[in-house]
Design a protein around this nucleic acid. Structure first.
Lengths: 310, 310
DNA sequence: ATCGAGTTGGCAATCGATTGTCGGCATGGT
DNA sequence: ACCATGCCGACAATCGATTGCCAACTCGAT
């Protein structure tokens, strides 16, 4: 039996005698034959795998996003190959290159830094199907699927304003990543006069606590503290408690991303859920289908999840 | 220039005229040549990649473990290929097979279910280098690197006993995964008489809250609630608060795994840190070095992280 | 009966890196 | 001057799946 014939029998890309097809299929399943994806990848320069690079899995938002992406890709029979950049642009570049070398059919990436991640992206071959997700770079080249930060910030500000807050503060990490830059811009544009902004020294719990403590120490303490992510908000809640303030009675606190930790906090955190399923579905579609233009930025709206903290 | 000669010049596995070596290296870097890992994998049946399958990234313990593993592997110039089984044995089997097909040089896996994950593992080729990490299956075949659950439970019980708790309760999910089975066995063996155990209906926040609420409703409420993971403990803290009990004054609560959420809780959670770095290092070593026996189970000790909840 | 059209099996090349083996050339010794 | 040794470039095969092309075969029609 010639391998070429067997291949045709299995793939059915050309007509083969039904008897032979039957024999080949039987033999294949008896011998436990599986096509070798490596050999196929070598020949066809395609692997059936999509690579994904996330800034860090320590931020509980990204596991959420990864799950959604995995689900969307499974529908297209694509396997996800996940890499964690551990918040380092060097590691990010390294991982991206490793994925390209492995002949992934496309890459979904959430860049660590809106500027310093640009290098890695631009040194990728032009033919690479690359979709940025959630976070983007300061450049219009690559396809991108993001959340509508402006709309999401609007939801938060509407909510806290309706709850009577007039002095509103925004705690935001240094805007190295595009989501923080966009949230800051949205806040600046949408917040009422008298709103304050403070740059946190990091994007974690401790940074949130320190920033909120500083805000609450001032003479005209805010009525509401809007935090650029849930970890910062967790810190803000801790700072409020330490300052003897009760949420939501004395102070409103909100987060961003609606990660699972929001539920565990005291009080449970009001947050804006990012449209992870929609973003994941769009990203998968952009990778799968032909897309007309090389440049495109899709923005999906988020949803406000109201819990007790605001 | 013959490709064979170029290959020898670059790898240096046989003597080549230094002049030619120089020319080849110059040309290679000018053209941006990179060896094709696919072609190499096809020929050598090795890929320089290690696969990892985790039960779920939604449990914040696993991102912790993944980071540690990635770090250990980087030292051996191995790339990590991560898969999330999303708590399903079917998906787990599927991912494991995909990794094997991709010619990974080894697999590090934390099985979803101590019994039902056995199939997938046994249907892997005998030649596959496979190391179980943290969780294991009910079978002595594969190499495994785990935490010493007995020792860790000892740390917790010592601590709460010393803090004056005599009625101790243990909240544990159904023992489908080996860590929970081991923790339950350790508790049963080490806890003082009069200790109670309650099987939670799941392994998350809600299950912990419901179980703790049930315990606190009883007439002889426990002085300490030991939870089999941090999410359950988060639920227990919520239940205590709802019952009007203050931790640690009225009730001690402890968790397991020392995940980042412990810090955010009110009060911050006392937990047992798993030896993730040690486990990751051992797993990498077992994959890299020749190991004498095919059967081996390494257990590393954990550390108690005392915060305010106990 | 013969020719043409259409079907189908098989051959060989391809994707790249690697390596056993061969042959050619040079050098040194007798 | 001739032979032996050794150094090194080049050839070809290999890993598997796939596919363009050729050849052989069948069947129908004239």
């Amino acid at each position: 039996m010639h391998p070429g014939t067997a291949s045709r029998a299995l793939t059915g890309r050309r007509h083969v005698d039904p008897l032979i097809v039957e024999r080949v299929k039987t033999a294949a399943s008896e011998l436990g034959y599986r096509v070798d994806p490596i050999a196929r990848a070598l020949r066809d320069s395609r692997s059936g795998m999509i690579g994904m690079v996330v800034p860090t899995l320590q931020n509980p938002f990204f596991p959420l996003l990864v799950s959604a992406v995995e689900e969307s890709l499974a529908a297209a029979e694509l396997t996800l190959l996940l890499c964690d950049a551990q918040d380092s642009v060097e590691r990010e570049a390294d991982r991206l290159q490793a994925l390209i070398d492995r002949r992934v059919d496309g890459v979904i990436m959430s860049p660590v830094d809106r500027r310093r991640s640009l290098n890695a992206i631009e040194s990728a071959p032009a033919a690479l199907r690359l979709v940025l997700i959630d976070r983007v770079v300061d450049h219009d080249g690559p396809l991108a699927v993001v959340a509508d930060q402006q709309q999401m910030m609007g939801l938060v500000l509407d909510h806290v304003t309706r709850r009577g807050a007039s002095r509103i503060a925004f705690v935001c990490p240094p805007a190295r990543s595009s989501v923080y830059a966009d949230r800051l811009a949205a806040f600046t544009q949408l917040a009422p006069t008298g709103a304050t902004r403070i740059e946190a020294d990091g994007e974690g719990f401790d940074a949130g606590r320190a920033s909120a403590a500083a805000l609450l120490r001032g003479e005209s303490a805010p009525h509401a503290i809007v935090c650029a992510n849930d970890l910062l908000a967790a810190g803000a809640l801790a700072a409020a408690r330490e300052a003897g303030l009760a949420c939501p009675d004395d102070l409103l606190v909100t987060g961003f991303d609606d990660t699972p930790i929001g539920e565990f906090l005291t009080p449970p955190l009001t947050s804006v859920a990012q449209p992870v399923r929609e973003m994941a579905a769009s990203a998968a579609r952009l990778l799968t289908e032909e897309h007309a233009s090389g440049t495109l930025r899709l923005a999906h709206p988020g949803r406000l999840i109201v819990r007790e903290s605001a």
